[in-house]
């Protein structure tokens, strides 16, 4: 478990102080995929780097599995960092070393294994990320997605308990992004390690994360389970991220359907309820007519969800609302 207790970070820039992270508390349970989302400059990168102390906190305590890592000396910090893997937006592979040598590097630095053990560990890792046949190539000969796979193999080499992902898919095309996210989810499931990732895309959060924290101007403005935050965003920043992920532009969203008659409501389905034929049933039983004004049906991690904005006209609208309230859906009456 990763705990932040009133951790903050400020640094001087040309005479005045910039606060990258205001005093923040955070709890990341072991085995979770935890997403941090924010625009550039929101402080998410700083927060991520505080976890392995690439950034030194200006104050507060960071406790990981009961150990106060803010109190570690240089030696202790190096040993701690060997238990925390990290992957990067631009991969940060050594151009002068082969794929296999890049993956072997953290093991050589740790100096605990002999060269034959390192070689067999490296081939296992490359197998896992699907790059066994590229072991003797140099990074420049690989595609972006392959480079990130090497980065992941390298980060996993020392069998870390935490994996930090710094915008790991931001430099990749959509298809490759999907493959890398799938690999991360698989690693999380099979190895049980905690993953903390930062991104500016809500879609990345939706696809792999269990929990999410939204950052804005050095403050965590909203956090919780992904389904909760994604389907019922409270803070303006979160709402904007959700809209961006649906490719809805601001103007469209401000349209409150003034020209549409009838009651307007939003239904949110999750899990099996997504597939229940609720709308048709209610319409038939209460005689209301419905038109769908906006909607999305997709998955959050592995769970299906649907969210529909409806206009109801005619029939017994109160009875219809009562039926929706009684059903396994979340109902908001917008008008």
């Amino acid at each position: 478990m990763i705990e932040f207790h009133q951790v903050h970070k400020a640094y001087p820039v040309q005479g005045h102080t910039i606060t990258a992270l205001h005093p923040s508390d955070l709890r990341i349970e072991t085995g979770q995929v935890f997403g941090l989302i924010g625009h550039s400059g929101a402080g998410k990168s700083t927060l991520l780097r505080l976890i392995n102390r690439l950034e030194e906190p200006s104050g507060g305590r960071i406790v990981i599995d009961g150990e106060d890592i803010t109190a570690l000396d240089a030696q202790g910090l190096r040993r701690f960092r060997q238990q925390v893997g990290m992957i990067f937006q631009h991969f940060n592979l050594l151009a002068s070393k082969t794929v296999a040598a890049n993956v072997a590097l953290p093991l050589q630095l740790a100096g605990e294994l002999g060269s034959s053990e390192i070689a067999s560990r490296v081939s296992q890792l490359l197998q896992r990320v699907g790059l066994a046949e590229h072991a003797h190539k140099y990074p420049a000969q690989l595609s972006g997605g392959q480079k990130q796979r090497v980065g992941i193999a390298r980060a996993l080499a020392t069998e870390p308990k935490i994996l930090l992902c710094d915008e790991a898919t931001s430099a990749l095309d959509p298809q490759t992004t999907g493959q890398v996210l799938q690999l991360l989810a698989e690693i999380n499931r099979e190895l049980g390690l905690s993953i903390v990732l930062i991104t500016h895309e809500m879609d990345v959060i939706r696809r792999v994360c269990d929990q999410v924290a939204v950052m804005d101007a050095g403050v965590i403005v909203e956090q919780g389970p992904v389904a909760q935050v994604f389907l019922h965003p409270q803070h303006a920043t979160t709402q904007r991220f959700v809209r961006e992920s649906e490719h809805v532009d601001e103007g469209e969203q401000h349209d409150d359907f003034a020209h549409v008659s009838g009651r307007i409501l939003r239904l949110t389905f999750q899990g099996e309820a997504t597939y229940a034929p609720l709308l048709g049933t209610v319409a038939r039983e209460t005689g209301v007519d419905y038109s769908i004004l906006a909607g999305r049906i997709d998955r959050i991690k592995d769970n299906p969800y649907g969210q529909l904005t409806l206009a109801l006209t005619g029939g017994d609208i109160d009875a219809a609302l009562a039926r929706f309230r009684a059903a396994d859906v979340h109902l908001e009456v917008l008008r």
């Binding site: 392995n52 690439l54 910090l77 190096r78 040993r79 701690f80 960092r81 060997q82 925390v84 990290m86 990067f88 631009h90 940060n92 592979l93 050594l94 590097l105 953290p106 630095l109 740790a110 020392t158 930090l164």
Partner: peptide, 15 residues
Amino acid sequence: VDRGIIEALQAMGAS
């Protein structure tokens, strides 16, 4: 040399 390489090595716990 790309600064990211130095950061990656630091993150691995390199001296």
